[in-house]
Amino acid sequence: MSSGGSDELIYEAKLSVLNRVDGSAQLSISSRKDLDEGELGIICSITGPIESKARQESPQQSNLEISVMPHIGVASTREKLLEYKLKLVLDRVIDSFEYPRQLIQIVLQILNKPNYEDDTTIGSDDMNDFFSLNDLNGCLISTYLALIDSGISMKSSFLSSCCIINSNNQLTTDFNKNDLINSKSAHLIVYDLRNGKCNNLIYSESIGEFDEQIFFKNVLDKCKKEIENLNTKVIKNCITEKFKNDYIWKA
């Protein structure tokens, strides 16, 4: 179990949590500002490369089957959209030519959601698209960890970060109830990493009204910092621990 945080969020990550799959990771993101706000808990499992059904086969590349299961209720169109977006990112990152005609099965189970999602006083009924953005953030990070655990070849490391611009025009990645009330826009940024530094922008999604300049200068910078922090403080420790555990049999 590796935990740590940037200036704002507390991440807890653990690898190899499940027994029947090739790779798994459990991630929990909670707010440092507001410890009672609950956490976003996601567990990701990866099985693959395995034999795929004839209709799913692709002659030179691997095929990705992604399922997102919500913590309450059955999977709906909301989860389908999350799966689609995940596939957009993962298709580029996973080295699919390494595993032709094979299937990589990724299942994400959302275990816990922050408490503000149930709080109707902040207009949470209208904020579903924002909550999805936050979910996507968690899904991407936990999928990355699970991919490392499963040993599937990737073209590069990648991590994501989600931030909002609240009503006082402040940028924050650690949002609680007060930040969400009348927040103006939300952004999800995914960078690939090289030598611990953010390299290229892989995926970006924004909802709401925002100024272009603020986006290109402040939002991207803030997310870059968050990602690099996350990488050095949490991800590296997590993976080091896994190797320590795996190598206990080495003389």
Partner: peptide, 15 residues
């Protein structure tokens, strides 16, 4: 009660 088993539990179960 919803008892859907996903492939996370084991690859034996199909979604």
């Amino acid at each position: 009660i919803n008892t859907e088993i996903s492939p996370m539990a084991s690859a034996m179960f199909e979604s």
